[in-house]
């Protein structure tokens, strides 16, 4: 056996059946006045249509002879969307995309290249695109968490930072404790899920591979590779965004910028 044992038509029928359950949940949440039914329905429609478009797009890329070209176009686009999404977390900072996009690209890009060179990712779009999605998505989340925390810490500790500047510290020296804090706290969710891997949390890649019929042992090996990718890419993009943000928080004369 390999993969889910039914074709597209049967898949659609089953999706319809499962939707009934979802409708039931929606009705229930409406009665309880949770106030989430609208958001939820909207998110489902948005997420569902995005997935549908992606499914079609992936199918086209998978059968195309030009797949390397499409892949090379798709990855920067994904990084760009990641940078844009992450940048919306710090609306006060001028041009935050100019620091989030390179951080996400560097973090996810460097591990992807490494995995590709070592042969951990086979040279086929079926592997490259979903793995890149995971790497970029995680780099994005960690980038957002780092930046959000750093800006908040800078605001909260403004007096302390200015005191250290007034005593002759450089911008780097004065923000360093808060940078460390932001990077660490941004990595906590990833580290916690790594710690409980397989016990609480059967991670996505492994679920996917097992569903697709891969042996659980190979799936587990692959999951560890995926985790190296996520943690490595996350740490790189977190450190990159923190050090790029430093130049946004301070002027050349070691002053805190007015927007902070």
């Amino acid at each position: 056996m390999s993969g889910i044992p039914y074709d597209e038509a049967e898949g659609l029928f089953r999706l319809g059946l499962v939707s009934l359950l979802f409708l039931l949940v929606l009705v229930l949440s409406r009665r309880r006045r949770l106030g989430i039914d609208r958001d939820f329905a909207f998110a489902l429609v948005k997420g569902g249509s995005q997935l549908a478009v992606v499914a079609v797009l992936l199918t086209l890329i998978f059968v195309s002879d030009l797949w390397p070209l499409w892949t090379l176009l798709l990855l920067p686009f994904m990084m760009f969307i990641g940078g844009w999404t992450s940048a919306r977390r710090t609306p006060d900072m001028p041009n935050p995309m100019m620091i989030t996009t390179p951080s996400i690209a560097l973090g996810s890009g460097s591990v992807l290249v490494f995995l590709f060179i070592t042969g951990a990712i086979p040279p086929a779009p079926q592997f490259i695109i979903p793995l890149a999605g995971m790497a970029i998505g995680n780099a994005m989340i960690i980038c957002s968490l780092t930046l959000d925390r750093l800006v908040r810490e800078a605001r909260l500790n403004r007096t302390r930072i200015e005191t250290s500047l007034a005593l002759g510290a450089s911008s780097t020296q004065s923000i360093e404790p808060y940078e460390t804090l932001s990077i660490r706290s941004a990595l906590i969710p990833t580290l916690d899920s790594l710690r409980t891997l397989g016990i609480i949390f059967i991670p996505g890649a492994m679920t996917g591979l097992v569903l697709a019929g891969t042996s659980p042992i190979v799936a587990a090996q692959y999951q560890i590779i995926v985790y190296f990718m996520i943690v490595g890419g996350g740490i790189i993009s977190s450190m990159t965004v923190a050090s790029l943000a430093r130049r946004r928080l301070f002027t050349h004369a070691c002053q805190i910028e007015a927007w902070v």
Partner: peptide, 29 residues
């Protein structure tokens, strides 16, 4: 700016302390 601040020192209205001991605070600069 850093050169200037080693000649023009400042004591702020709020005395925010750095983590660590009094000695480490005094020798911070």
């Amino acid at each position: 700016a850093r050169q200037l601040r080693s000649q023009v020192g400042m004591v702020f209205q709020d005395s925010a302390m750095f983590p660590g001991t009094v000695r480490e605070n005094i020798s911070f600069g």
